[in-house]
């Protein structure tokens, strides 16, 4: 029945709805450039969501772990084969995304008889010079976006817009790693809160007598409120942070930050999160 064009459009529409549902439990991912490179941050429930792809490439993801693994492996495979056959400087995030995985994700999304990839992906690429740093995000339908300075993944487009707006508003010219981590966590909290708010709004719509403040018009909470939210959620989960560092010796620039690396960087109110 999907052969008819109308049916196909309808099926793809259903698919979007289904996929949007799948990200509801997901934790946002924030990528931010700072003076020494690029910082990636998220909060995970045990399984890491930040990965090393190549010498200067890192990956962050949301969605189904198995789908994410599948795409991670194809990125790793493409990057290493290209890096070996040509040279490591020919492995670029934009080529891997645009000609590598984005077409695969799009095809899976549009073949309505088959399962789509339940993923949103962020690829961070550390340039030789800071102005060459690049951030790419890919949605579950294969659309990709390139951005400079910061990029985020979130459960809904609305949450994503809020996070990006907050980051753009706060970003001074250059950040130290400590400042970047602080800002990234606040942006993460914005995404996470916006998402909670949307959930309650939806419930409220079904109940006739409900609160009046909607997710869209709610004012941006203060830094203290945001940090309290991070503390509340990260307590039972793992704070995941990774950096791509320009000045580090050797070819591999990726480093995952261990609790002992994070402790001195975090604001005092969050120290307890990494301590346990």
């Amino acid at each position: 029945m999907y052969e008819e064009p109308y049916r196909w459009v309808e099926a793809v529409g259903n698919r979007r709805q289904y996929l949007d549902e799948q990200f509801k439990q997901g934790s946002p991912v924030v990528a931010l450039t700072y003076e020494g490179g690029i910082l990636l941050t998220t909060v995970s429930k045990g399984t890491a969501k930040l990965y090393e792809i190549y010498d200067r490439l890192a990956l962050g993801g949301m969605g189904h772990p198995t789908d994410l693994e599948k795409l991670r492996f194809s990125l790793l495979e493409m990057a290493h084969v290209e890096g070996f056959n040509r040279s490591p400087s020919d492995v670029t995030g934009s080529r891997l995304v645009k000609y590598g995985i984005a077409p695969v994700i799009k095809q899976a999304f549009e073949e309505v008889y088959k399962a789509p990839f339940i993923v949103r992906i962020l690829v961070a690429e550390l340039g030789v010079k800071p102005e060459k740093d690049a951030l790419l995000t890919i949605n579950y339908d294969g659309t990709f976006e390139e951005s400079i300075g910061c990029a985020v993944l979130a459960a809904t487009p609305a949450a994503q817009t809020k996070m990006t707006a907050y980051l753009k508003e706060q970003t001074p010219a250059t950040l130290s790693l400590e400042q970047a981590l602080d800002l990234a966590l606040r942006a993460w909290a914005i995404g996470s809160l916006a998402h909670q708010q949307e959930e309650t709004d939806q419930q409220a719509e079904s109940e006739p007598s409900a609160g009046k403040v909607s997710a869209v018009s709610a004012p941006v909470p203060s830094a203290e409120v945001l940090m309290a939210h991070v503390r509340g959620i990260a307590g039972g989960r793992t704070l995941d942070c990774a950096v791509l560092e320009r000045q580090v010796p050797g070819t591999s620039k990726y480093r995952s930050l261990k609790p002992s690396d994070l402790a001195p960087l975090l604001p005092k109110s969050l120290q307890s999160v990494v301590a346990n």
Partner: peptide
């Protein structure tokens, strides 16, 4: 050496 370098990195990055 090129093969080895890539092999060790590939192992580390895929197998974590």
């Amino acid at each position: 050496v090129r093969v080895l370098e890539h092999s060790f990195k590939y192992y580390r990055r895929t197998q974590l």
